[in-house]
Design a protein around this nucleic acid. Structure first.
Lengths: 205, 205
DNA sequence: TAGATTGTTAATCGATTAACAATC
DNA sequence: TAGATTGTTAATCGATTAACAATC
């Protein structure tokens, strides 16, 4: 156990552990070891044990980790033992696909509002949610105390939209626009850019 | 300049540099410095210089880097100074959104084939491309010598589909299924899982 | 008990940063 | 020339791995 600040690189692996554990749980498995988990996800057993031990002694010598218990611990650490409201800004192809995506269930998130600037899209219903105009976004975010947003607008307006989100109180942004977003340091950003990910692999081809 | 093996973490930053440089180029800027670039993308100037210098001496003391020249160098290093064929397997919401995504242009990629197992989807046309059945996928991949695939099928079948892709000769996989994919070590995989990215941020909320 | 596996230490390995001579 | 900025070295910092005592 370690009360110091946990390195972000470790935090980044916890959701991967959690995802693998939930998969094992679905199959009905009760117990796993750092070795087995490591083989599942391509991470060394020593690293998994070291990462987990930052937060407490969750395993048992000889038998390993209780899967339901470790899931519960990781969910609590990651604060996904509850359901967070998420909004999506930008109803282009990616945003539309995300609005209809059903992969957030039981992972701690729920899409609650959709926004776009295009008058043709505003008022449409996607996955039972109405698309709102961005002009009323700040107010709606504040009113609902939304902390998490997905940005899927064109690159040209992504920073402007981000500034509005930050001003409205959003603290975590998942960015699909192919541009780096500048935010205050108390706001988290994760970048998802398919082209960037592909370019990282072509080097090895 | 360094003929040794370049660390993957450096390779992973090159596409980010490239994206920022292309953005500067679009604005007509001719020259930049490690300092300016670093401020744009939140990376230290020293690290940018060190990363770039792994591949040669591309800058000039006193003036910095020629943007068109550095773009050309990075594109060549990353092998995106050409257009790669990319196929998408799985025409659910995410796959459908990716098929219609127009963000691959001028970044080295072109979606050429779409696949799905659902008889209702096979035969449909998305973005001028016909959706093919997965049953004929291996043959089509081999025939067209496709090296890059995007996997956006449900988690339950993602590994099976991946095995087929690998057998057909695919060497780079962008995985949207929320599951770790096992592949031979000469095959690259990048994972994109929105829920995992979001969970990494909720820790800090 | 015997076997297995954790949590943790120490050693190794790798990445980042600071600083500055070289030079445009 | 004077100012600016690179490429690179050395120092620092951080992450990973190997190994094993503790113990279930």
């Amino acid at each position: 156990m370690n009360a110091d600040k946990i390195p972000d690189i470790i935090i980044g692996r916890l959701p991967i552990y959690l995802r693998a554990l939930q998969r094992l749980a679905e199959k009905g498995t009760q117990t796993t070891s750092s070795q087995e988990l490591g083989e599942m996800i391509g991470i060394s057993a020593a690293q998994i044990r070291k990462d987990i031990s930052q937060f407490g002694e969750f395993g048992k010598q000889g038998t390993g980790y209780s899967i339901p218990f470790l899931i519960e611990r990781l969910q609590t650490i990651l604060k996904v033992n509850r359901v967070w409201d998420v909004i999506i800004v930008g109803m282009g192809d990616i945003g539309h696909g995300l609005a209809r995506y059903n992969g957030f269930g039981n992972r701690g998130f729920q899409v609650t509002m959709l926004f776009d600037n295009d008058p043709d899209k505003v008022g449409q219903t996607i996955n039972d949610l109405e698309v709102f105009s961005i002009s009323g976004m700040t107010e709606k975010i504040k009113h609902n105390k939304v902390k998490i947003a997905i940005v899927s607008v064109p690159a040209a307006v992504a920073q402007t939209v981000t500034d509005q989100l930050v001003k409205a109180g959003v603290k975590a942004i998942l960015n699909y626009a192919p541009i780096h977003l500048n935010v205050p340091k108390d706001v988290q950003v994760q970048h998802i850019d398919p082209a960037t990910h592909l370019q990282r692999m072509t080097y090895y081809l």
